[in-house]
């Protein structure tokens, strides 16, 4: 409902650089089973943003003093390739990547039954091979699919998408050009992640937005997450059917 409202509000006035509708996602491409050595893996591309995720585990946590006898540990590592953006990034972890790694853990943990895996660890490695905004969302989507592909028990998939505001218009799934938008109120970027039943497991925001419009943006993101969820499920089903053949 809410999505429709903002669409009419903006029609005629505002056009996105790539001509997308306000609630239109970039073309998505997803596939599981892309890293043969891993227990589970997935690639998720949204427009020009591409993320690969690989899962190892659940396995014994080493060193032993890091083990948690009450529940298993989810350990995510988000890493952007040095060549994934115009200005080369110094290889290795930095403060931004450490924060996104943690955010990814927080986004995924609510759907995992970590209590069933005491003293174990599930490693999730995320690599961004090409970045055009929305890399943390792409990483979370890939990671969620990779966990399912690895057969890790989950209550649902986690689906991540960014809502945004360009000047006064609410939009979905900002690309890099839109993230650098400078007119009017400028860009607002709101990456969000949802469980299968639409609960928020991750939210960040940078920009300028009123509480009322933010509520609208969250609803829009929740709608778009449903579309992405279908694509994630299809990719997982396709892999099973591929195995049968």
């Amino acid at each position: 409902m809410t999505t429709k409202k903002s669409e009419t509000k903006s029609s005629g006035k505002f056009e996105r650089p790539d001509g997308r509708k306000v609630n239109e996602l970039r073309p998505i491409w997803a596939k599981v089973g892309v890293v043969p050595n891993a227990d589970g893996s997935a690639i998720y591309a949204s427009g020009d943003t591409i993320a690969i995720a690989a899962v190892y585990g659940p396995k014994q946590m080493h060193p032993q003093h890091s083990q948690n006898p009450e529940k298993g540990t989810l350990r995510c590592t988000y890493l952007m390739n040095s060549f994934s953006v115009n200005e080369r990034i110094k290889p290795g972890p930095n403060r931004r990547s450490m924060e996104i790694s943690k955010i990814t853990e927080w986004a995924l943990e609510p759907v995992l039954m970590l209590k069933d895996f005491p003293s174990q660890v599930i490693d999730v490695h995320i690599n961004i091979i090409q970045a055009d905004a929305g890399t943390r969302c792409a990483g979370i989507n890939a990671a969620s699919m990779a966990l399912a592909h690895a057969g890790v028990p989950m209550k649902s998939l986690v689906t991540s998408v960014s809502a945004g505001k360009l000047d006064k218009t609410l939009v979905i799934d900002l690309d890099k050009e839109e993230e650098d938008f400078e007119e009017g109120e400028g860009p607002t970027d709101i990456p969000l992640s949802f469980t299968g039943d639409g609960k928020i497991t991750h939210m960040q925001l940078d920009g300028k937005i009123s509480p009322a419009q933010l509520k609208e943006a969250v609803e829009m993101a929740r709608e778009s997450a449903k579309e992405i969820h279908k694509i994630q499920v299809k990719a997982l089903k396709d892999s099973v059917e591929g195995d049968k053949k």
Binding site: P110, I200, Q204
Partner: peptide, 14 residues
């Protein structure tokens, strides 16, 4: 609102 961070892993309903 100009910035938000949700921290820790518990889910929150809309």
């Amino acid at each position: 609102i100009s910035s938000i961070q949700k921290g820790e892993s518990h889910q929150v309903s809309v």
